[in-house]
Design a protein around this nucleic acid. Structure first.
Lengths: 251, 251
DNA sequence: TGTCGTGATCTGTGATCACAGTTAGGTTGG
DNA sequence: CCAACCTAACTGTGATCACAGATCACGACA
């Protein structure tokens, strides 16, 4: 019950070995600052959350997570503190820490904010995207199509590709704080959105996501900011509508 | 050098004594959850940051802050972790933790995001505001006018009233996650914005802020969402322009 | 058989200790 | 008089211990 948390691999591995293809070796030297254990745990939990690997309402135990990750309780406390500050986790007064269960109203608010913020990001991306940016987005789009069109659909790969696709778009806007904002929104909405996709991979077959992505890409290629926003809004709204209908949300 | 941090008052005071007039006694019992020490420290530091009491580049020492607040180092660590996760504080690799120094580009990005997000909040507030909401905003507006019109201007009071005015408006939108987003933005921009106002209270005399507030209030009273957005955008843009010209921002 | 009490076990929170790395200041050698 | 070294004090990070409170299961009583 307690978790899909797995041991952190190779504590000695170079922290900058995460394949950011566009960072030069020189930049890597500058940020040679070793990743702290707490940051590593935070990243691990964040990944689990946006991927929907941690279900809403699921309880986490600091000691359990610490043991599973092979570290002391201390870094886990730090990670949970950060995530709780973001609303990505919830720590009940005297109880345990758990993944928040969103009410329908909260989910609707989150969706409205995503429309505003990610819509703005899409506009800006359409204006600023370089050919290299567009190529990256196209690559993730292809990966998403493949995962979603498979039989049966590879939901885990689709979730990952969808995330990569969206953030490749947002990164094209070249606004770091904006990306942080969007990551926070995804952290909150991720558990329901992607848990659902994991449970009902058939949703992918409708193809509404693939269609929206196609329109989005075309708009970005033509530098049509309003069209990019519209396509992205459709993508978000379609997924949200499905969740609001079938998802398990609190009253 | 190290800080305007002051001891936490009355550790035994009831946490639910914050006057939420619209919560029934029964609900208050439910949320009797005592505020944790770490949360209290977080709140203290947040207040100092948005008020510009902590200057950009100023270094903080966990032990110093802990001693000043009369608590152990532990709660301070938690608070700093949270604020660092939000980008409101910055912890150098092997050095100390300090208030981030924004570059001009970062400040401009922050301003653009504020225009998008707070502009949306103003629109929504104009649509949803109740008479009670409007009264609260008017009260803070009056306080701001008084502080800004005094000779010499009471910059500290003006900063506080300005903050209260803006957040009273945003709270009228009744979107909790939206308010969290805006608080995060203020946390990042607060140090420069309000440090400057503290150093150059003459800026208040121009009256551009008061004028924008007046237009904002009038728009909200008439439920004119676009006008409210426009007025707020002018308010933000005017202050930002002043900072970008005279503020001390990194290249 | 149903219900309440009770203790063992778990929870997060806070404090204290230990440590490696950096910084700054003072001293010594040129 | 200047520069370089070197030591002492400080930094955040991580681990371990102690504690109050909540949960849950088991058992006794009605």
């Amino acid at each position: 019950m307690t978790a899909a948390v797995q041991p952190l691999r190779a504590a000695t591995e170079r922290p900058d070995s995460t394949g950011d293809a566009d960072t030069s070796a020189l930049d890597a030297i500058g940020s040679l600052a070793r990743e702290t254990l707490g940051e590593r745990v935070t990243g691990e939990l964040r990944a689990l959350l946006v991927a929907g690997r941690l279900a809403p309402g699921e309880k986490l135990s600091l000691r359990r997570v610490a043991e599973a990750l092979g570290v002391s309780m201390m870094p886990v406390r730090e990670a949970v503190s950060r995530l709780a500050a973001d609303g990505a986790l919830e720590v009940l007064p005297g109880r345990a820490v758990r993944v928040p269960v969103l009410s329908l109203a909260q989910f609707r608010e989150l969706t409205r904010l995503r429309l505003v913020v990610e819509g703005f990001a899409a506009e800006e991306a359409a204006r600023q995207a370089t050919p290299a940016d567009i190529e990256r987005i196209e690559a993730f789009d292809a990966a998403f199509r493949q995962a979603a069109s498979a039989d049966p659909p590879d939901s885990a790969a689709a979730v990952a590709a969808n995330r990569d696709l969206h953030f490749a778009l947002y990164e094209a806007a070249a606004m770091p704080s904006l990306i942080e904002m969007i990551e926070r929104l995804w952290l909150k909405a991720g558990p329901i959105l992607n848990l659902d996709m994991r449970h009902e991979p058939r949703r992918l077959e409708g193809g509404s996501a693939m269609q929206a992505h196609a329109r989005l890409l075309e708009a970005v290629r033509r530098r049509n900011a309003p069209a990019a926003r519209a396509a992205l809004e459709d993508d978000i709204a379609a997924a949200a509508a499905h969740i609001a209908e079938t998802g398990q949300l609190r009253a």
